[in-house]
Design a protein around this nucleic acid. Structure first.
Length: 875
RNA sequence: GGGAGCUUAGCUCAGCUGGUUCAGAGCAUCUGCCUUACAAGCAGAGGGUCACUGGUUCGAACCCAGUAGUUCCCA
């Protein structure tokens, strides 16, 4: 059989993915085993896979696959989110392309289009997840707007309303004038921009005096209902209690005082526009100011503005500045930087706006969510996010849950047009209830609230609703899988989503929704910019998979992304991953090519097997520990080194049969079997990271039943380690030293060398000689009692090694090298002796430490003696 | 403006409760090798005043204070 020199992912990935599906290895149903559950952070139904998903889902898959191998009932629930504002925006844009305006459609017509669109493009992202190997239980795929989940959302709304946790009121909200909807605080991104600060003077009523205010938003002047100064501000004390005139609008407004004012900013006088700024709004409430709403929902000036009606607020900003200037009321204009809020979804500048919205009270309901993170009932990984979380939860505001959209769960509130409101599931119910309040009401006059609920108001129920925990609170699934184990998500949505799931978990199950929250970093480009569609700096993960293989990309991403750290993405990482796949592939090729003989196992092979067995156990323990701490990239790196360095570079080189007459000699059966066993173990620990290549080799290395797959193989047990690992560290050092001499003296690796060892202390251990001979290509490894003249040498521990060479030794160079070594060791000795001479050290240090220092002293003395001897031999 | 975090090799990061001459890993770099598993490889090597300043200590990358730079969160 001819095995290709390089691993080709293309011919294995689809094959094994469908094989796994065919045998339902991803499927999970409740049984006797311990469950291990992850619910996917549902991506937007219309989204496409980006690098963030790639990282996120790779981590989830690694966790799930390992748990599955550990014999747990692993269940990874996939699904998508209806993402109301993002999806609706996309559908609106698409319809526009087809010449259809949303405003010309009825709600039903629009939703029909939206569902068609969702059917057509929705779920592409789930197909893409298959490419990277995600082992989700696809039979459990859920969608936040499917019937059952929507029903849960509505029920929760009604329940919270009945509990008095939900209210409707006029509040200042973040208004997206493009999406024509309110958005939550978390959906507003603040960016620093260059703006202008306009100094405008207002005439003080009944005097020739002026008061100058500073504002970045002169277009809101038309809505001013006060000017505010700090009560202690000496500059304005004479104006307390007076009134002034709003320029252009010619309205008289009071000059009020409040300690909220920053005297240092601008002129220390603030124009107050309660309708268009949250702080002004609060001032307005406090001082009972009039509210004049001059900007309409679409961001254009309203009738109430009286001037510039129907023109966009940004156009008006320029116009009014010019007009005020002409009126002589602009004192000056400065350039400043300030922060402006943008809508995360549409990127429009957010307009603070007063409107009627639904809110969820957060103060009480969020308490358990804070407590249980602080007491580590729920762990955030890395821990540093606990601070941020705490800060947010302690200052949480009521959650504006209504959105002026159609795509989403419609708010189950009904109005009779006479000021009566009821909240219930169906219109029939509403009619009944409203009749009780108003016997005159006719069914046709009753209308349902036009708004839908915030998307997060459905996704906060996700860990419960995917297991039908609302429909069947005592169902088998919910009781078995909930609480889930790990949640893997981006820190950006810690508050949007994670915190709210925790809130809902305690409110509706009385239990946490998950135990560990693994927060991944943000994938950035080389320049450190966030990957985004608009910048076009994000590679298509599917392209990467085609180029490097899914395993390669998985390894590449995980190698350098510790939890919570941003990941500056570089394709070369995937290259490293691909190279690693190839390394594993070639180890397989080597082993697969061997023929076995009935010959007895050599001592050298016996040692090699014993060593690797021990080494594997030692490293596996470390790997398991790293997993338990969610240090995924370190677990991978440790695995990587175990495979590449210990297994390939050392172990295989030790046992590799010689090549004679163009043919490899056979290997003894015992060593061969041990090697296959090692290789299988290695494939197992690689499997969570590299599912495809390991499955492929698993089936090639041995005849197996098609159901005997590595995906369900048992995670290896870490057995005992023995002393051989420690001895071997020295053997390796000897080998490296000999290779180094060879390299420095420019001797071809093919030329055989002789090496002699002079043991100065302790017994002579010849066990490893054959291995040294093999790995250094020696003709002889001998022992001497006297030093060998005219040879290159080095000192390790209590032994000296000599490499006699035909070529002349550069005595001066050798002297220099040895002298350097001597100096180093003398320095070392001195540092140890200083420590030991320090009474306070001897008094305070732990006994083990002291012992160790004494041992170091003895070792250093021995080594110095040996080097000095060698040096004297050179003269 | 308020809060949190970060700063260790060219890059990405380890470095647990201060104690091996503690300064480490991978990648990248350099040198020599196409040695029949792998050049996507092998064998070697060189890289760092642990941001800066001061303090605590017998001893500091690690603890404390301040400074600078940087990131994030909140307003």
């Amino acid at each position: 059989m001819e095995i290709p020199k390089t691993y080709d992912p293309k011919i294995t990935e689809d094959k094994w993915y469908s094989h796994w599906l065919k045998h339902k290895f991803f499927k999970s149903v409740p049984d006797e085993r311990e469950p291990y559950t992850i619910v996917i952070p549902p991506p937007n139904v219309t989204g496409v896979l980006h690098m963030g998903h790639m990282l996120n889902n790779t981590i989830q898959d690694v966790l799930i696959r390992r748990a599955r191998m550990q014999g747990k009932n692993a269940c990874w629930v996939p699904g998508t989110d209806h993402a109301s504002i993002a999806t609706e925006a996309k559908v609106v844009a698409l319809l526009k392309e087809q010449g259809i305006n949303k405003s010309d459609l009825t709600r039903e017509e629009f939703l029909k289009h939206a569902f068609e669109w969702k059917e057509k493009y929705g779920g592409i992202i789930l197909k893409q997840l298959e490419k990277l190997g995600a082992s989700c239980d696809w039979d459990r795929t859920r969608f936040t707007m499917e019937e059952d989940l929507s029903e849960a959302v509505i029920d929760v709304f009604i329940d919270l309303y009945n509990k008095g946790q939900i209210y409707r009121g006029v509040r200042m909200v973040n208004w997206d004038p493009q999406g024509l909807t309110a958005v939550s605080d978390e959906e507003v991104q603040h960016k620093e921009v260059n703006s202008k600060l306009y100094y405008v003077k207002y005439k003080v009523e009944g005097s020739e005096d002026w008061i100058t205010i500073a504002t970045t938003r002169p277009e809101t002047i038309l809505g001013d209902t006060a000017v505010c100064v700090h009560p202690d501000d000496e500059r304005y004390k004479h104006l307390h209690g007076k009134r002034c005139i709003v320029p252009m609008a010619n309205r008289s407004i009071p000059i009020i005082t409040d300690e909220y004012i920053t005297m240092e900013f601008g002129t220390g006088a603030l124009k107050v526009t309660p309708a268009h700024d949250i702080n002004d709004y609060n001032l307005g409430v406090k001082h009972k100011l009039e509210v004049i709403d001059t900007i309409a929902a679409d961001g254009k000036m309203s009738e109430a503005a009286k001037f510039y009606v129907g023109e966009d607020r940004f156009t008006v900003r320029k116009k009014i500045a010019k007009d005020l200037e002409e009126m002589g009321q602009i004192v000056k204009i400065e350039d400043i930087k300030n922060k402006v809020g943008y809508s995360e979804r549409t990127n429009a500048v957010i307009e603070p706006k007063l409107s009627m919205q639904w809110f969820l009270k957060m103060d009480k309901i969020s308490k358990p969510a804070l407590e249980n993170v602080l007491n580590e009932e729920i762990k955030l990984i890395p821990e540093k996010y606990v601070n941020t979380y705490k800060h947010w939860m302690e200052n949480v505001h009521d959650w504006c849950i209504s959105r002026q959209l159609w795509w989403g769960q419609r708010i189950p509130a009904w109005y009779d047009g006479k000021g009566n409101t009821v909240v219930c599931k169906t219109k029939d119910e509403a009619v009944q209830k409203l009749k009780g309040l108003n016997s005159e009401v006719k069914a046709e006059d009753i209308r349902q609230d036009e708004d839908v609920l915030d998307t997060w108001f459905s996704s906060w129920l996700w860990p419960i609703s995917v297991f039908d925990g609302f429909k069947h609170p005592e169902g088998k699934d919910i009781n078995y899988y909930y609480p889930t184990n790990d949640l893997v998500t981006a820190p950006e949505i810690l508050f949007f989503w994670v915190a709210r799931m925790i809130i809902a978990g305690y409110e509706y199950r009385g239990k946490k929704p998950f135990t560990n929250v693994y927060l991944t970093g943000i994938v950035r480009d080389k320049q450190g910019r966030k990957m985004s569609k608009s910048l076009g700096n994000s590679p298509d993960p599917i392209d990467l998979i085609n180029q490097y293989g899914a395993d390669g990309v998985r390894v590449g991403m995980l190698l350098c992304s510790p939890a919570g750290n941003d990941l500056p993405f570089d394709e070369s990482m995937c290259e490293q991953g691909r190279n690693f796949s190839n390394k594993v592939w070639n180890a397989f090729r080597l082993i697969k090519g061997w023929e076995t003989s009935s010959e007895k196992q050599s001592e050298a092979n016996k040692i090699a097997v014993k060593w690797f067995d021990s080494k594997f156990n030692e490293q596996l323990e470390i790997i398991n520990d790293l997993y338990s701490k969610y240090r995924m990239s370190e677990a991978l790196m440790t695995t990587y080194k175990l495979v590449w360095d210990d297994f390939c570079a050392w172990y295989l080189e030790m046992i590799k049969p010689e090549f004679v007459d163009g043919k490899s000699l056979p290997i003894d059966k015992e060593t061969y079997d041990a090697t296959i066993n090692f290789f299988e173990k290695i494939l197992k620990i690689l499997h969570p990271f590299m599912p495809f290549i390991t499955e492929e080799i698993w089936h090639l290395i041995k005849e197996r039943d098609e159901k005997d797959c590595i995906i369900i193989a048992e995670w290896p047990e870490s057995g005992k380690t023995n002393d051989i690992v420690k001895h071997f560290d020295i053997v390796m050092e000897v080998i490296t030293n000999i290779r180094n001499i060879r390299k420095q003296k420019n001797i071809s690796p093919k030329e055989k060398l002789e090496v002699f060892e002079k043991v100065n202390q302790g017994e002579i251990i010849k066990t490893y000689d054959d291995i040294i001979i093999k790995l250094c290509n020696l003709s002889k490894f001998g022992y001497v009692t006297e030093k060998v003249d005219g040879a290159f040498s080095f000192v390790l521990k209590h032994a000296e090694f000599f490499v006699p060479l035909a070529q002349n030794i550069d005595i001066e160079a050798e002297k220099e090298r040895l002298t350097k070594d001597l100096e180093y060791n003398k320095g070392f000795l001195k540092s140890v002796q200083v420590k030991l001479a320090n009474e306070k050290f001897v008094a305070n240090a732990k006994p083990e430490l002291l012992e160790n220092e004494k041992k170091k002293q003895a070792d250093a003395l021995a080594k110095i003696k040996a080097i000095e001897e060698q040096l004297s031999g050179l003269n």
